[in-house]
């Protein structure tokens, strides 16, 4: 009997440990609702560990072409079960920082970035979590109709 209980215990542990990841993966379904008047173009799942002492800030980057004359609606959704709040930063093909979703001076997160593009090119989207906390999120790029 003891043997079976251990097996069942292990089963629950497996399910619990995979819970965080599966919720992270299904975030896009929740985030989809924020599109409103925009057309979905791209999404990236982001899952990063907590920043260790003396380590560089964990972050991931993706590239995507943006076109002049189009207004892009860019946003992200955080998984509630992890503490990290995602920050997006966007750089142009010349590596100039165009914007971040966190305004340092105002200590304010922008829930949505509206970006009417004037310069076509390939832009780099970088994602990291505030204060290097562990987090999971999904970043979405859409175009306003």
């Amino acid at each position: 009997m003891k043997k079976y209980l251990v097996l069942i215990g292990l089963l629950f542990l497996t399910l619990l440990s995979s819970k965080g990841f599966s919720q992270c993966g299904s975030l896009l379904d929740v985030c989809h609702g924020k599109l409103d008047n925009a057309r979905f173009l791209k999404s990236w799942p982001i899952q990063l560990p907590e920043q260790g002492k003396g380590e560089t800030l964990p972050q991931v980057s993706f590239k995507m072409p943006l076109t002049a004359g189009t207004t892009y609606k860019i946003f992200a959704c955080n998984a509630e079960e992890l503490p990290g709040k995602v920050i997006i930063s966007i750089r142009n093909h010349n590596d100039d920082l165009v914007i971040t979703s966190y305004l340092v001076e105002q200590q304010r997160h922008l829930p949505i970035i509206m970006f009417p593009v004037g310069m076509s090119g390939i832009y780099t989207f970088s994602f990291y979590f505030e204060d290097g906390q562990e987090g999971c999120a999904v970043g979405v790029v859409s175009s306003v109709k």
């Binding site: 010349n94 165009v98 004037g118 090119g121």
Partner: peptide
């Protein structure tokens, strides 16, 4: 293709933060 980079500005339009891209291609 030529590019002219200018610092972007941030404006608040109808309660929404809009990044105004002053660069041109």
């Amino acid at each position: 293709i030529t590019y002219v980079y200018k610092e972007p500005t941030i404006e608040e339009i109808d309660g929404m933060v809009v990044l105004v891209d002053n660069s041109r291609s």
